[in-house]
Protein backbone atom coordinates (compact mmCIF):
# COMPACT_ATOMS: atom_id res chain seq x y z
CA UNK A 1 0.00 0.00 0.00
CA UNK A 2 1.24 3.49 -0.82
CA UNK A 3 3.09 5.32 1.95
CA UNK A 4 1.49 8.73 1.30
CA UNK A 5 -1.96 7.32 1.97
CA UNK A 6 -3.28 7.56 5.51
CA UNK A 7 -6.41 5.55 4.78
CA UNK A 8 -6.76 2.79 2.26
CA UNK A 9 -9.78 0.46 2.27
CA UNK A 10 -10.61 -2.55 0.11
CA UNK A 11 -14.14 -3.90 -0.02
CA UNK A 12 -14.87 -2.83 3.53
CA UNK A 13 -18.33 -4.05 4.58
CA UNK A 14 -20.35 -4.21 7.76
CA UNK A 15 -23.68 -5.90 8.42
CA UNK A 16 -25.73 -5.65 11.61
CA UNK A 17 -27.82 -8.77 11.27
CA UNK A 18 -29.82 -8.30 8.08
CA UNK A 19 -29.08 -4.57 7.94
CA UNK A 20 -26.24 -3.65 5.59
CA UNK A 21 -24.54 -0.61 7.11
CA UNK A 22 -21.52 -0.45 4.81
CA UNK A 23 -21.00 -2.18 1.49
CA UNK A 24 -17.68 -2.69 -0.34
CA UNK A 25 -16.09 0.61 0.59
CA UNK A 26 -13.02 1.25 -1.57
CA UNK A 27 -11.35 4.46 -0.51
CA UNK A 28 -7.99 6.21 -0.46
CA UNK A 29 -7.26 9.29 1.63
CA UNK A 30 -4.00 11.16 1.04
CA UNK A 31 -1.81 12.04 3.97
CA UNK A 32 -2.29 15.66 5.07
CA UNK A 33 -5.58 16.04 3.21
CA UNK A 34 -9.05 16.88 4.46
CA UNK A 35 -11.54 14.23 3.41
CA UNK A 36 -15.27 14.59 3.90
CA UNK A 37 -17.74 11.71 4.02
CA UNK A 38 -21.20 13.06 3.31
CA UNK A 39 -24.45 11.22 3.62
CA UNK A 40 -27.89 11.25 5.19
CA UNK A 41 -28.58 9.93 8.69
CA UNK A 42 -28.08 6.17 8.79
CA UNK A 43 -25.96 6.12 5.62
CA UNK A 44 -23.09 4.29 7.34
CA UNK A 45 -20.72 7.21 8.04
CA UNK A 46 -20.32 6.52 11.78
CA UNK A 47 -19.92 2.80 11.07
CA UNK A 48 -17.08 3.60 8.68
CA UNK A 49 -15.36 5.84 11.22
CA UNK A 50 -15.71 3.26 14.00
CA UNK A 51 -14.21 0.52 11.84
CA UNK A 52 -11.32 2.72 10.70
CA UNK A 53 -10.55 3.86 14.25
CA UNK A 54 -10.39 0.26 15.49
CA UNK A 55 -13.58 0.33 17.56
CA UNK A 56 -15.74 -1.90 15.41
CA UNK A 57 -14.98 -5.11 13.55
CA UNK A 58 -15.82 -5.15 9.87
CA UNK A 59 -17.79 -8.06 8.44
CA UNK A 60 -15.50 -8.32 5.44
CA UNK A 61 -12.84 -6.42 3.55
CA UNK A 62 -9.68 -4.83 4.82
CA UNK A 63 -8.10 -1.47 5.47
CA UNK A 64 -4.95 0.24 6.63
CA UNK A 65 -4.93 3.40 8.70
CA UNK A 66 -1.68 5.40 8.95
CA UNK A 67 -0.01 2.30 7.53
CA UNK A 68 -1.40 -0.01 10.22
CA UNK A 69 -3.70 -2.96 9.62
CA UNK A 70 -7.16 -2.59 11.18
CA UNK A 71 -7.24 -6.29 12.10
CA UNK A 72 -3.91 -6.67 13.81
CA UNK A 73 -2.61 -3.20 14.72
CA UNK A 74 -5.52 -1.52 16.46
CA UNK A 75 -3.37 -0.25 19.32
CA UNK A 76 -0.99 1.49 16.91
CA UNK A 77 -3.96 2.97 15.03
CA UNK A 78 -5.41 4.36 18.26
CA UNK A 79 -2.05 5.90 19.18
CA UNK A 80 -1.78 7.60 15.80
CA UNK A 81 -5.37 8.84 15.52
CA UNK A 82 -7.84 10.99 17.39
CA UNK A 83 -11.60 10.49 17.34
CA UNK A 84 -14.39 12.94 17.99
CA UNK A 85 -17.48 10.76 18.36
CA UNK A 86 -20.92 11.71 17.10
CA UNK A 87 -22.46 12.00 20.57
CA UNK A 88 -20.44 13.56 23.37
CA UNK A 89 -19.40 11.05 26.03
CA UNK A 90 -18.11 13.60 28.46
CA UNK A 91 -17.83 13.00 32.18
CA UNK A 92 -20.48 15.31 33.60
CA UNK A 93 -18.80 15.51 37.00
CA UNK A 94 -15.37 16.55 35.77
CA UNK A 95 -14.32 20.05 34.77
CA UNK A 96 -13.01 20.71 31.24
CA UNK A 97 -9.43 20.72 32.50
CA UNK A 98 -9.91 17.49 34.45
CA UNK A 99 -11.52 15.82 31.44
CA UNK A 100 -8.62 16.85 29.19
CA UNK A 101 -6.16 15.61 31.84
CA UNK A 102 -8.04 12.29 31.78
CA UNK A 103 -7.86 12.02 27.98
CA UNK A 104 -4.20 13.06 28.07
CA UNK A 105 -3.44 10.35 30.64
CA UNK A 106 -5.23 7.75 28.49
CA UNK A 107 -2.81 8.79 25.74
CA UNK A 108 0.14 8.46 28.16
CA UNK A 109 0.60 12.21 28.60
CA UNK A 110 1.06 14.03 31.89
CA UNK A 111 3.03 16.81 33.51
CA UNK A 112 3.99 20.24 32.28
CA UNK A 113 3.54 19.59 28.56
CA UNK A 114 -0.01 18.30 29.03
CA UNK A 115 -1.04 21.25 31.20
CA UNK A 116 0.49 23.76 28.82
CA UNK A 117 -1.42 22.22 25.96
CA UNK A 118 -4.67 22.16 27.94
CA UNK A 119 -4.29 25.84 28.84
CA UNK A 120 -3.55 26.79 25.22
CA UNK A 121 -6.48 24.79 23.87
CA UNK A 122 -8.89 26.23 26.46
CA UNK A 123 -7.69 29.68 25.49
CA UNK A 124 -8.08 28.94 21.78
CA UNK A 125 -11.61 27.61 22.29
CA UNK A 126 -12.58 30.64 24.37
CA UNK A 127 -13.31 28.49 27.41
CA UNK A 128 -10.60 29.77 29.74
CA UNK A 129 -13.14 31.46 32.05
CA UNK A 130 -15.19 28.29 32.41
CA UNK A 131 -12.39 25.71 32.36
CA UNK A 132 -12.82 24.78 36.03
CA UNK A 133 -16.62 24.47 35.92
CA UNK A 134 -18.17 21.00 35.86
CA UNK A 135 -19.05 19.90 32.34
CA UNK A 136 -22.68 19.24 33.35
CA UNK A 137 -23.26 23.00 33.24
CA UNK A 138 -21.80 23.47 29.74
CA UNK A 139 -24.00 24.14 26.71
CA UNK A 140 -23.86 21.54 23.94
CA UNK A 141 -21.65 23.83 21.85
CA UNK A 142 -19.20 24.26 24.70
CA UNK A 143 -19.10 20.51 25.24
CA UNK A 144 -18.36 20.05 21.56
CA UNK A 145 -15.45 22.49 21.81
CA UNK A 146 -14.03 20.49 24.74
CA UNK A 147 -14.34 17.34 22.66
CA UNK A 148 -12.56 18.96 19.72
CA UNK A 149 -9.76 19.94 22.13
CA UNK A 150 -9.59 16.38 23.50
CA UNK A 151 -9.34 14.99 19.98
CA UNK A 152 -6.28 17.03 18.98
CA UNK A 153 -4.65 17.08 22.44
CA UNK A 154 -2.12 14.33 21.71
CA UNK A 155 -1.31 15.68 18.23
CA UNK A 156 -2.64 12.73 16.25
CA UNK A 157 -1.49 12.13 12.70
CA UNK A 158 -5.05 11.44 11.58
CA UNK A 159 -8.22 12.91 13.08
CA UNK A 160 -11.70 11.42 12.70
CA UNK A 161 -14.43 13.99 13.20
CA UNK A 162 -17.95 12.59 13.33
CA UNK A 163 -20.44 15.46 13.00
CA UNK A 164 -17.97 17.83 14.61
CA UNK A 165 -19.85 21.06 13.97
CA UNK A 166 -23.50 19.98 14.12
CA UNK A 167 -23.97 21.46 17.57
CA UNK A 168 -21.83 24.55 17.11
CA UNK A 169 -22.91 28.12 16.46
CA UNK A 170 -21.50 29.84 13.33
CA UNK A 171 -18.54 31.45 15.09
CA UNK A 172 -17.51 28.23 16.85
CA UNK A 173 -17.98 26.34 13.60
CA UNK A 174 -15.69 28.83 11.86
CA UNK A 175 -13.10 28.31 14.61
CA UNK A 176 -13.16 24.54 14.10
CA UNK A 177 -12.80 25.06 10.34
CA UNK A 178 -9.74 27.22 10.92
CA UNK A 179 -8.22 24.67 13.31
CA UNK A 180 -8.73 21.92 10.76
CA UNK A 181 -7.17 23.89 7.93
CA UNK A 182 -4.25 25.09 10.06
CA UNK A 183 -3.47 21.58 11.33
CA UNK A 184 -3.72 20.12 7.84
CA UNK A 185 -1.47 22.79 6.34
CA UNK A 186 1.08 23.34 9.10
CA UNK A 187 1.24 19.94 10.77
CA UNK A 188 0.35 17.70 7.84
CA UNK A 189 -2.53 16.25 9.89
CA UNK A 190 -5.07 14.24 7.92
CA UNK A 191 -8.76 14.81 8.61
CA UNK A 192 -11.56 12.34 7.96
CA UNK A 193 -14.77 14.27 8.50
CA UNK A 194 -18.24 12.76 8.59
CA UNK A 195 -20.96 15.32 8.15
CA UNK A 196 -24.28 16.06 6.55
CA UNK A 197 -23.57 19.79 6.53
CA UNK A 198 -22.79 20.43 2.89
CA UNK A 199 -21.66 24.04 3.29
CA UNK A 200 -19.09 23.03 5.90
CA UNK A 201 -17.82 20.20 3.71
CA UNK A 202 -17.63 22.46 0.66
CA UNK A 203 -15.54 25.01 2.58
CA UNK A 204 -13.13 22.62 4.27
CA UNK A 205 -12.79 19.34 2.37
CA UNK A 206 -10.46 18.78 -0.54
CA UNK A 207 -12.08 15.48 -1.45
CA UNK A 208 -15.62 14.39 -0.71
CA UNK A 209 -17.27 11.01 -0.81
CA UNK A 210 -21.05 10.70 -0.76
CA UNK A 211 -22.32 7.64 1.05
CA UNK A 212 -25.91 6.50 0.73
CA UNK A 213 -27.38 3.32 2.21
CA UNK A 214 -23.89 2.02 2.90
CA UNK A 215 -22.62 2.50 -0.66
CA UNK A 216 -20.08 5.12 -1.71
CA UNK A 217 -21.57 6.38 -4.95
CA UNK A 218 -19.68 9.62 -5.59
CA UNK A 219 -16.07 10.62 -5.00
CA UNK A 220 -14.18 13.77 -5.99
CA UNK A 221 -13.45 17.36 -5.16
CA UNK A 222 -16.48 19.53 -4.29
CA UNK A 223 -16.21 21.39 -7.61
CA UNK A 224 -15.89 18.12 -9.48
CA UNK A 225 -19.01 16.67 -7.85
CA UNK A 226 -21.05 19.83 -8.53
CA UNK A 227 -20.03 19.71 -12.20
CA UNK A 228 -20.67 15.96 -12.48
CA UNK A 229 -24.37 16.33 -11.63
CA UNK A 230 -24.77 19.85 -13.08
CA UNK A 231 -25.80 21.32 -9.74
CA UNK A 232 -25.68 24.88 -8.43
CA UNK A 233 -23.74 24.09 -5.29
CA UNK A 234 -22.79 21.09 -3.15
CA UNK A 235 -26.15 21.01 -1.35
CA UNK A 236 -27.97 20.84 -4.67
CA UNK A 237 -25.55 18.14 -5.85
CA UNK A 238 -26.04 16.20 -2.63
CA UNK A 239 -29.82 16.31 -2.97
CA UNK A 240 -29.60 15.16 -6.58
CA UNK A 241 -27.35 12.24 -5.65
CA UNK A 242 -28.97 11.16 -2.40
CA UNK A 243 -32.53 12.17 -3.19
CA UNK A 244 -34.72 14.15 -0.86
CA UNK A 245 -35.96 16.82 -3.28
CA UNK A 246 -39.02 18.34 -1.70
CA UNK A 247 -42.42 17.75 -3.30
CA UNK A 248 -43.99 21.15 -2.67
CA UNK A 249 -47.50 19.94 -3.44
CA UNK A 250 -47.39 17.76 -0.33
CA UNK A 251 -46.04 20.35 2.07
CA UNK A 252 -49.37 21.29 3.63
CA UNK A 253 -51.32 18.14 2.82
CA UNK A 254 -51.05 16.94 6.40
CA UNK A 255 -53.90 19.33 7.28
CA UNK A 256 -56.41 17.43 5.14
Amino acid sequence: MSSNLDIQTKGLSKNFGSVIALQNLDLEVQSGSVFGLLGPNGAGKTTAVRILSGLLKQTSGNATVCGFDINTQRKEIKAATGLLPETPGLYSKLSAVEFLEFIGALNDMSGELLHRRIDSLMDLMGLEDRQNDLLESYSSGMKQKVLVASTVLHEPKLVFLDEATSRLDPSASALVKEIIMAMAKEMDTTFFICTHMTDFAEDVCEVIGILNEGILNTLGSPRNIIEQVEAEDLEDAYLKIVGGQVDRSKLLSWRD
Binding site: G82, L83, P85, T87, P88, L106, D108
Partner: peptide
Protein backbone atom coordinates in the same frame (compact mmCIF):
# COMPACT_ATOMS: atom_id res chain seq x y z
CA UNK B 1 -19.34 3.79 33.36
CA UNK B 2 -21.65 6.68 32.56
CA UNK B 3 -22.50 6.01 28.93
CA UNK B 4 -21.66 4.06 25.81
CA UNK B 5 -20.27 7.26 24.29
CA UNK B 6 -17.81 7.47 27.16
CA UNK B 7 -16.70 3.94 26.39
CA UNK B 8 -16.10 4.92 22.74
CA UNK B 9 -13.78 7.71 23.90
CA UNK B 10 -11.88 5.40 26.24
CA UNK B 11 -11.64 2.67 23.61
CA UNK B 12 -10.34 5.08 21.00
CA UNK B 13 -7.08 5.46 22.96
CA UNK B 14 -4.28 2.86 22.97
CA UNK B 15 -4.97 0.30 25.74
CA UNK B 16 -7.52 2.80 27.06
CA UNK B 17 -9.88 0.23 28.55
CA UNK B 18 -7.12 -1.43 30.59
CA UNK B 19 -5.81 1.90 31.85
CA UNK B 20 -9.34 2.97 32.75
Amino acid sequence: LESKDQLWIIKSTPNGVWKF
